[in-house]
Design a binder for these strands. Structure first.
Ligand code: SF4
Ligand code: SF4
Lengths: 154, 154
DNA sequence: ATATATAAGATATATTTAGTCTTATATCGA
DNA sequence: TCGATATAAGACTAAATATATCTTATATAT
């Protein structure tokens, strides 16, 4: 009953992009460093975000990622579910046929309600708000003055 | 982001016991058959429920399980958390120190809120209500007339 | 005291998650 | 136009977890 690592990383990625605004191209390397995500793992996650239509992936020497939509239109729920699939607190929520008693089950109803509530809460959060409010995800702010390169990169 | 099998089984077990009422001894075998849980797996789960003070385990030839508390006092949350530990939708909810940015993170706050809401919903559901309302968990009602043994057991 | 039915704990298998490595593609510079 | 480089894309490996079974110990009844 917890978010996977990939889901968490996906959120960080989109949040970082949201700080730069819709359409701004950011290299995978920068995102990986700033959000502390293994670069190759990030690549895999980005593919899922791209398939979901949240970001666009640009290839080549000057490639990177960029948001296709305005951050205010991207919800936390959308990003999470792009990575880990539709949230389903119990098997029977997503696939009622997995338990032949789901039609009658009182517990099932509680799960359905809780699931719906959870998804609603995550849907209320959009990335414009999340990104604007204050610093998150490791480095306080990206490219604060353009040349604070640590040079202590491992 | 889903309940483990063990958690689901724990709920079924307590629900079955709740049907029999507080203090009634029910054999592991009966519970296992009625709720479709592997008997040995159920034993392990029962241990956790016992440690949490929800059920009592009686050993010996006439042993079994029984509820220590009135079903109305047992919440869905308590049973779930007895099995899978405290619910934490993201690592940083349960262990804020796992991410050094949790103090500032706006996403973290959303997770906290969602987590709290989820736990509240599960806490509202008690087993008296769950058991009374209608049939759940496989066999419609335990010991309906004492001998509706399917005999088609695999 | 012995046999039986059960619980308790240890062990093994399967599945999923997390991360790395290799291959392919696109842009840039000569 | 061709080669070098930086990136994306996909295949693969290792670790963690979940699931289930097996073995051992305990308690009751005969
Ligand atoms: S018994 Fe109820 S809660 Fe459990 S899996 Fe079946 S429908 Fe869902
Ligand atoms: S970045 Fe925010 S949401 Fe993600 S783990 Fe850290 S505190 Fe939690």
């Amino acid at each position: 009953m917890r978010l996977t690592r990939a889901g968490e990383y996906g959120i960080r990625c989109v949040l970082h992009l949201a700080r730069h605004g819709k359409g701004t191209l950011v290299s995978r390397k920068e995102i990986a460093v700033r959000t502390d995500v293994p670069p190759h793992f990030l690549a895999k996650i980005a593919q899922q975000l791209a398939r979901a239509g949240i970001i666009e992936i640009l290839q080549g020497a000057t490639g990177g990622y960029r948001l296709l939509t305005d951050p205010s239109k991207i919800t936390l729920l959308a990003v999470i579910e792009a990575i880990i699939g539709e949230i389903s607190l119990n098997d029977c929520v997503g696939r009622p046929e997995s338990c032949h008693n789901s039609a009658l089950c009182t517990v099932h109803r509680v799960w359905n309600k809780a699931n719906q509530q959870l998804r609603a809460t995550l849907q209320e959060a959009n990335f414009a708000t999340l990104a604007a409010e204050d610093a998150c995800c490791l480095t306080p702010f990206p490219e604060a003055d353009g040349h604070n390169q640590p040079s202590g990169k491992k």
